[in-house]
Amino acid sequence: MTLAATAALLATGPTTGAAAQTHGFLSPTGVEIAFLLVGLVTFGAALVTVTTRQLVHAALWLVVTLGGLAVEYLLLTAEFIAWVQVLIYVGSVVVLLLFGLMLTRAPIGRSPDADSGNRWAALAVAVAAAAALVWVVVDAFRTTWIDLDGPAAGSTEATGASLFQNWVLPFEALSVLLLAALVGAIVLSRKAKAESSSPPVNAPGVTKSSRTVTQGSGSSEQEGAR
């Protein structure tokens, strides 16, 4: 898809504008080559994430995808976003997902029912959306050139200055939202603990999983109390 689009661009490129004349798709810069290679790795890892039948492997391939995206941010000179991506996504979100997989007792090996029955309809929808989006995006931005020279656009200084000069109020609202999410997660765990401890008629497998989860909620309460 992208190769065909690039070929079409090469045919019409030199006549479309000044940016395309100075920066053709036939002579990519080093940053573009690095971006393409890392982008291929990222896209391949994303494809494996949504198609593998081993649940834990899906989470580990998600690490590759998110790390590749962090490298893409670095190549776009957005270094603060890149390190935030590494810290939050690779560091905490994937660990949370792995904890979730363990607490729901996901099978370690291959699980044959990882994909539902509407896989082909989903594939058709995704391919149609990808074709439409790539066509529109390439058609709209084929002559647009990002100038990566000069000072970095996303250095920590620039990001911090804009965040605390122009975006202070949304920033504070976001902290309230994070607090609400923290309290909400604790409440969801606590209410379930009260329910599962009162009726002792549950099946043994279910009570075993609830005991694990109540231990998890207890530790999060301790962290909240600290």
């Binding site: 990808a130 989006l133 995006v137 931005f141």
Partner: peptide, 15 residues
């Protein structure tokens, strides 16, 4: 860098 590269990668990842 052409803006088309990150835009296309973003569209593919979204799909």
């Amino acid at each position: 860098m052409h803006l088309a590269y990150p835009a296309v990668l973003s569209a593919l990842l979204f799909c």
